[in-house]
Design a protein around this nucleic acid. Structure first.
Lengths: 78, 78
DNA sequence: ATATTGTGATGACTATAGTCCGAAAATGAT
DNA sequence: ATCATTTTCGGACTATAGTCATCACAATAT
């Protein structure tokens, strides 16, 4: 499992927990709606700045988000 | 203080603690020598994948790296 | 039936991440 | 001071992050 796929899965999960649509999250994070879709499907690799922009709208710290991704990466890495 | 400036400062600090030259870190992380220089001076914004590639060579987790950046951002944010 | 809302998909586009080469400048030995 | 190592800076380049407009399609509501 690649980093971007796992990031996308976590993003979707957290977004849904926050009961936001892709469009609403995009608006609040000042990003494009279709880009959120691309991210969640693992088609794009977010920059650190983008991770900050997203997590600030999702009641989670950037570090915690990355920790969740890292956890999954290490788990899948065997 | 912008995210990329703070990231650059942290990267340089951690690289020096690991006693690696920019060139050696670049080689190990499969990145370009001059790009490490750009990152450390806050001229580029790394993707999540790049952060993983770098931290794997620096005896630090990606999440901890981001936590350090976040800490600095919040401190400066007033 | 037909709006409405949420998401996926595509293609064309702009902005910027990341590479490559080389030379100048800084740093740090000896 | 000189020499080697490291870093910075330049420009030209390639790859990809992120935008925009639009269509399709499913689910739910009216």
């Amino acid at each position: 499992m690649s980093i971007e796929i796992i990031f996308g899965q976590q993003l979707r999960k957290i977004r849904e927990e926050n009961k936001l649509s892709q469009e609403e999250l995009a608006f609040r994070a000042k990003l494009d709606r279709t880009y959120i879709s691309l991210l969640e499907r693992g088609k794009r690799r977010p920059t650190l700045n983008t991770i900050f922009a997203l997590t600030q709208q999702l009641n989670i710290s950037a570090a915690e988000m990355v920790r969740l991704v890292e956890e999954q990466v290490l788990n899948f890495h065997h």
